[in-house]
Design a protein around this nucleic acid. Sequence first.
DNA 1: CTGAAAGCGCTTACAG
DNA 2: CTGAAAGCGCTTACAG
Lengths: 335, 335
Amino acid sequence: MVTRAEVACRAGVSVGTVSNVINKKAFVKPEYVQKVKKAIEELNYVPDFNAKSLARRRNNHIGIALFEMTNPYHAEVIQGLEKYAAEHDYIVTTFLLDNNTDKKYEVICERRLDALVNFMTNDLPRNFIETLKSQQTVLVNFNPQDSFVVMNDYSQSMLECMRLLHDYGHTKVAYLSSIDDMRYKADKRGEIFLTKRAEFGFDCSDDLVFCNDDYMLHSEEIGYKLCGRLLSRRSDVTAIFCMNDLVAFGAMRKINEAGLSCPSDISVVGCDDIALGAYFNPPLTTMSFDKMKHGANIAKKIIEKIENTESPYERIIVGSELRLRGSITKCRYER
Amino acid sequence: MVTRAEVACRAGVSVGTVSNVINKKAFVKPEYVQKVKKAIEELNYVPDFNAKSLARRRNNHIGIALFEMTNPYHAEVIQGLEKYAAEHDYIVTTFLLDNNTDKKYEVICERRLDALVNFMTNDLPRNFIETLKSQQTVLVNFNPQDSFVVMNDYSQSMLECMRLLHDYGHTKVAYLSSIDDMRYKADKRGEIFLTKRAEFGFDCSDDLVFCNDDYMLHSEEIGYKLCGRLLSRRSDVTAIFCMNDLVAFGAMRKINEAGLSCPSDISVVGCDDIALGAYFNPPLTTMSFDKMKHGANIAKKIIEKIENTESPYERIIVGSELRLRGSITKCRYER
DNA sequence: CTGAAAGCGCTTACAG
DNA sequence: CTGAAAGCGCTTACAG
């Protein structure tokens, strides 16, 4: 490996000067600039970012805490995030916190990340967060007082969809949540469904709401399982809100296996508009927002905060719109 | 940030000794071990992995070159890879090479990765590869002479499936490839289809084979597009092999939109068995292999090679098995 | 404007 | 077995 010293030597300048031409921080006599560039070219010199990091005490490294990599929703958000980050010389690495988490908390801390985005649904240990804070790591989706908090505002499209189902004559409308009971009520979607369903004339029974109780399950499995419970408890259900598209896929599978049909027997609505939703049969109605742009926005906030500690933590709110597709239709009892 | 020096000071030993107890490389008097551990505990000391990397000239960092993050196939493989890697103290970061690639090649080189896995379908520039080699980066899926090469052996399940379609009375069988003409023939699946279809009595016309010609498209879009071409050219087709499950989803969508039905009009077979395939309507028949385990195996080979340069580059071959589901059935003309 | 030098937080021969 | 010290490849005040 050729180092900066060799470049300096060949260019006949000091290492500091080489740094200055590479980082364009200070003015360097054009003649030297040329010499240095030539030396870099000839030696095929590639700077060592890790050494740079140590000296600058900044890594240009953003971490993402995830439970599973196979959720296309996160994949799209991360893709947008990593794209923006890359344009600003940051790399982003994902940490799977599905097992052996204590060790992984350590690993994350040791890497001295500049920022960590939390996409887990369960809580992370307090001392882990404290260590991160003491390292000045910029946090996303931890406690509001010391991190950015990303909020999806589904209220408009949720209401729009509820109105539509009402107009279609549905009254036995269920809700399947991939998060547990407590969180479900805090989640905007759940809250709106709970508080507004009476207004739309929906049946307000408790047994139309099902929450996940097993953290190890993937969303599609959750949807499948919860829909099974729903059908056995309330065979009169005619429409289902699902907390995300994967839950909806699981529910649709269960509906098919039960010998029923979506949408003619049961309408299904998902959330997040992952790319494959439009490819399903029937295509999935869902609440959509620009996930790539959202990811890029998160990255932007993070980088601003890293490069200017003064910039405040705030909420990042994203709106959504209803994407109407074949998975919902008029209530069968209305025809 | 508390450093190793402070720990040493509080424990009344030298930094070297602290290193020795942390890394367990040399025997340290038990009394000192205790003191050091106590100091670490009290000071809440977390080692700096980047500094360690610089000194050891090894990063414990594996990179993955990807075109898109939303392909669930790669997601699963990467998940297995990252899990194994994490257990061995490596982190893995993905680099999206979908745009601005020159800059990203630089970034990758600057990070001094210990290994890079190539999941791109197009070629990477020679000088990029050369730089990586000069850095001793362990390569996967580059040229066979200087990298591991991962091969999926679909031949058994491919033949099994061809036999089944034959038994079901299909003769107008198409193949949709998400990679271009040249690569398609080199790919095992394509090769087998091409060379064996006569044996199974399939129609051997060229216009039953369609290859992708647009690198910017995602697999599901490719399947949708190619299936459109296929249907307009050969409305008599009764079965379709798709190069992967996403291509199959695209094809199925097109079939539905054309007013046809899968499988009663056209049987569809995918490849890779991504998790959502079983959730489709109809559930997708596909060629399956354990992607997590496969990813873990790649990680294992990589780490062996990093930690023992002598260990040779070899081929990593994975077998597959047919996963029979609802998307294929008897040829409609046979009933 | 440029060079010499200290420093970033570790590891690792090398003496003792 | 342990400590002092050089070194990893950069950055960045500080003189000049």
